[in-house]
Design a protein around this nucleic acid. Structure first.
Length: 510
RNA sequence: GGGUCUGUAGCUUAGUCGGUAGAGCGGCGGACUCUUAAUCCGCAGGCCAGGGGUUCGAGUCCCUUCAGGCCCGCCA
């Protein structure tokens, strides 16, 4: 049983399992009827006295601490709703049960109990156990009761174990689930329809990023995992759905760090007849409503910084942000003097840049981004960086685009969507040119999308909000791995035949 | 990709100048009928991440591989 090194079964637990089998006790029964969850026991019996209740209840959960007192035990039982103490007496259980419990049931096992509720001498609401049933025998031993499981790698790789022993981790993911639910409710209540668009795409688009590649055997065709749902959602707006959104997993073939996971969650929202100003207001409203619902207030601290989500949030053009926060008035200089200033301030990539607008972006990234702690919308991006955004209505060379920054992280990105099919075609051509010059992140020319615009997309505003980062902000976690249940990790044991497999396997369809 | 730190029992860890691997929790055996990190007595459990080297002798020093954390780069 133990010859496979990746199996963590405990020999002593296996022995107990064997003993239980020999006693004819079912290790994995099929169901258990509960009269109460632990939380509902606490609610109903909050006034319990020292004498056990007349009402008999049944509940179930996992055993945590077990305190052996000879002919009695105290034990902690937990279900999803909470924790309650069990008081187990030899003389109260059916004949033989106590011995079986003592010998073969232990911390980590899942049991059901029937009993009556009372308050112990020291005032803790407990269940006086009349009978107990093993519901699941655990073969792996649990981490230590006091320090718990702190090894980060183990917590991420074996998240189930992290969830079993670390209440804070369970809280984080409970909050994550609520955030997504609040987001959906907000949008659907506001008349948005939720759709699912393809994850497997023959062309990828909607962002600048390198994709994951895969292969469809029957079609004999390369496919990409989407880097964004954008181009499909806009096709829906062309089709006549005026308010749409998708909670999408996106996949980008990039390195992993504390704010990037190769697969990440984003909500993309599109609204016909709206522009980027409307989408900023929507973004502000969605996020602050979630914050209020989760925290009851408008302020949440992140990495020592109290962050106020009280609307309205600050709005600055990129140019103003670089001037006031970065201390450089880009358009008061020529390229050469900007190169000099940039070198002094440690701005990177300025040597190969030849336009003031591109300089603006580089200065912004280097000098401003990580200083935007309070929620701040940065608006009016250079057209070169935004092939899917509509040209600015008054500022030549810019697009109507915004990004939301909080705690130095980019949280959202939105714009007045480009709906001029010819302009879109030219922008794609520009991207193709960049691809030819070796830019692996430039976008692909999606002719069908251009055709869709050819049938007419109303003026439309769109925004994408990064869900993982939003959860980080709300739950106070500095690492994205803490808010993704199963973050991407490198495989531990490399098996030769599956490692370094060529990407699209051309031999399979030969 | 670069820098840096880490990897010792199921978990949390100690390990000095290189000299036979130490503990707590958990487990097992024993005592205990209101404890809650229960307590008390005893026992078992280790290829010190893997490989190589230096040395009479390596958990400790050197090289290397693997995995992870943090920072930087790349990137939303």
């Amino acid at each position: 049983m133990q010859d496979n090194p990746s199996i963590q079964f405990d020999d002593q637990r296996l022995a107990k399992r064997q003993q239980l089998l020999e006693e004819g006790i079912s290790l994995y029964p099929h169901e258990y009827k509960r009269s109460h969850t632990i939380d509902s026991i606490r609610t109903q019996f909050c006034e319990a006295g020292h004498d056990p209740s007349s009402e008999v209840i049944s509940t179930a959960g996992r055993l945590y601490g077990v305190r052996d007192h000879g002919k009695t035990f105290f034990a902690d039982l937990r279900d999803e709703t909470g924790r309650i103490q069990l008081y187990i007496r030899k003389d109260a259980l059916p004949e033989g049960k106590f011995q079986t419990f003592k010998n073969c049931i232990e911390r980590g096992d899942i049991i059901g109990v029937t009993g009556r509720v009372f308050k112990t001498k020291v005032g803790e609401i407990s269940i006086f156990v009349d009978d107990l049933t093993l519901l699941t025998k655990t073969l792996c031993s649990l981490p230590e009761k006091f320090h718990g499981l702190t090894n980060l790698e183990k917590r991420y790789r074996q998240r189930y174990l992290d969830l079993i022993v670390n209440e804070e981790s369970r809280d984080t993911f409970r909050t994550r689930s609520r955030i997504i639910s609040l987001l959906r409710n907000y949008l659907t209540n506001d008349g948005f329809l939720e759709f699912e668009t393809p994850t497997l795409q023959p062309l990828y688009g909607g962002a600048n990023a390198r994709p994951f590649t895969t292969f469809h055997n029957a079609l004999g065709q390369k496919l990409y995992l989407r880097i964004a749902p954008e181009l499909y959602l806009k096709r829906l707006v062309v089709g006549g759905f005026e308010k749409v959104f998708e909670v999408a997993k996106n996949f980008r073939n990039e390195d992993i760090d504390t704010s990037h996971n190769p697969e990440f969650s984003m909500v993309e929202i599109y609204q016909a007849y709206a522009d980027y100003q409307d989408m900023m207001r929507l973004t502000e409203s969605v996020i602050s409503s979630i914050i209020v619902n989760i925290t009851g207030g408008v302020e949440v601290s992140f990495e020592e910084n109290p962050i106020s989500y009280k609307a309205p949030w600050q709005v600055m053009t990129m140019e103003d942000a670089v001037r006031t926060i970065g201390g450089v008035d880009i358009f008061a200089h020529d390229i050469d003097s900007l190169r000099k200033i940039g070198n002094e301030k440690g701005v990177e990539g300025i040597e190969e840049t030849s336009s003031l607008r591109e300089m603006l972006v580089l200065f912004f990234e280097a000098l401003v981004e990580d200083k935007l702690i309070q929620p701040t919308f940065i608006t009016d991006f250079p057209v070169e960086n935004s092939p899917l955004a509509k040209s600015h209505r008054v500022k030549e060379g810019y697009v109507e685009r915004f990004e939301l920054f909080i705690a130095g992280m980019e949280i959202a990105n939105g714009f007045s969507e480009l709906n001029d099919p010819l302009d879109q075609m030219h922008r794609f051509e520009g991207q193709e040119e960049k691809r030819r010059l070796g830019d692996e992140e430039a976008q692909m020319h999606d002719y069908d999308f251009v055709n869709a615009l050819g049938y007419g997309m109303p003026p439309t505003g769109g925004v994408g909000i990064g869900i993982d980062r939003l959860v980080m902000l709300i739950t106070g976690n500095s690492s994205i791995k803490e808010v993704i249940l199963f973050p991407s990790m490198k495989r531990e044991q490399v098996t030769p035949e599956t490692d370094n497999e060529a990407v699209p396997s051309d031999d399979e369809n030969a």
